[in-house]
Design a binder for these strands. Structure first.
Lengths: 216, 216
DNA sequence: CTCGAAATGCGACTGGAGTCGCATTAGGAT
DNA sequence: ATCCTAATGCGACTCCAGTCGCATTTCGAG
């Protein structure tokens, strides 16, 4: 407000000196607000109703800032997904692989068939498929999920229930894939029996050693 | 044409006589052009590059007509998908369920990992997930695929390889779901080994009777 | 405390998607 | 052959997502 301070004179050649010197600052607060607003918007209005303007209005951050830092709706979704990747799902430990896998698939079933619980992850996953940034965030998201859930298979290996060397993440993928397949690819209705069957089939294949290197 | 005379003088109240008397006409030709243009556009520019204007320009059909009849990009994709649902995939018949399923999953793998072959179905599936019309078309598309491919399981039942009452479509879903799961949900890379493992796991579960009503 | 630079706020501008009313064309029926 | 009507062509209009240049604020450094 005092004077202008228009970088006069100094046009010396110092291009790549400090590319990103001080990113930390209020940016952190802004980002938190924006992520929260994005999640709230995507939950309230679904993916198709998600607009940059709405996130700007809800978060109090200017629209141009959102476009500058996130590049658009895609980036917002990707960032929200990244922030959501840390949250842990309840991981069962019943002492039996089949039971554990059933719990996992039932949990997936319960979350995504509940309009309240499922709207946010559904919208997030749908939205993330549309951009490279979103796809990368989605990969990281599921990688974290798989790695986390692989523990049930690893415990089964320890118990001697599964052959050593079994790829735990692959077991989890086999168990949950039919559910996500229906939810996000074919759009077929999902029921509890399908969830159980998928878990049982995965457990069966895992016990047969199909997910171990020597099982080939 | 003889008896059914046109009541010219009769101004009697006949509101719901012929709401949509003659839809057939050049509409068929227009539709064929539009579907072809939509497929060409979605193949050439991907889903994000698909615009109504581009389809209008390529097909020679006016933009307003496209919006009137198809409602937008979503409807165009849905119609293109419906038109594509009839095309048959090569269906193996090796005499062994495991081999047949492996052929199927390898075919899926081959198509979707080939940039040339896979771009159209990939874009179509991605696009279809964004609207109700597209989702409905996608369901029909996969229903046709499943019903078609279920034949390999039904033949296995006839051979005595699978228990009677086995849900053939469910077997196919189990075999292919892990592939589509990676392709369209997690975005993980797809390899031939994963395709084989999915087929083997499905065959194993099917033989164990998990997809038969008594298998519960 | 003061200064510098980056990040944000701000509003106007642009471009294209989508809509509307009307003129024209084409197919079906008498 | 001729009329009737639905379907299409046409262009202008609206509206909103996304961009740009500049003013302002805030954080880090000295």
């Amino acid at each position: 407000m005092s004077d202008r301070a228009p970088q006069p004179g100094h046009a010396q050649p110092e291009p790549p000196r400090t590319p990103t010197p001080r990113p930390g600052g209020r940016s952190a607060r802004v980002r938190a607000d924006v992520v929260a607003a994005t999640l709230a918007e995507v939950t309230a209005r679904g993916y198709d109703g998600l607009t940059v303007d709405a996130v700007a209005a809800r978060s109090g951050v200017h629209k141009a800032t959102l476009y500058r830092r996130w590049g658009g709706v895609d980036g917002l979704v990707a960032d929200a997904l990244t922030a959501s990747a840390d949250q842990a799902w309840p991981l069962p430990d019943t002492g039996d692989l089949g039971q554990d896998l059933r719990r996992i698939t039932r949990e997936v079933f319960a979350v995504f068939t509940d309009p309240e619980l499922g709207s946010t992850p559904t919208a997030l996953i749908t939205a993330a498929q549309r951009s490279d940034a979103g796809a990368a965030a989605l990969r990281a998201f599921f990688a974290a999920r798989h790695q986390q859930a692989a523990a049930v298979a690893e415990r089964a290996v320890t118990r001697g229930e599964l052959p050593p060397g079994t790829d735990g993440a692959e077991v989890v993928r086999a168990a949950t894939a039919p559910l996500y397949y229906r939810l996000f690819v074919t759009g077929e209705p999902l029921d509890a029996r399908a969830a159980e069957r998928a878990a049982d089939a995965a457990a069966l294949a895992a016990r047969a050693g199909l997910f171990a290197p020597t099982g080939d």
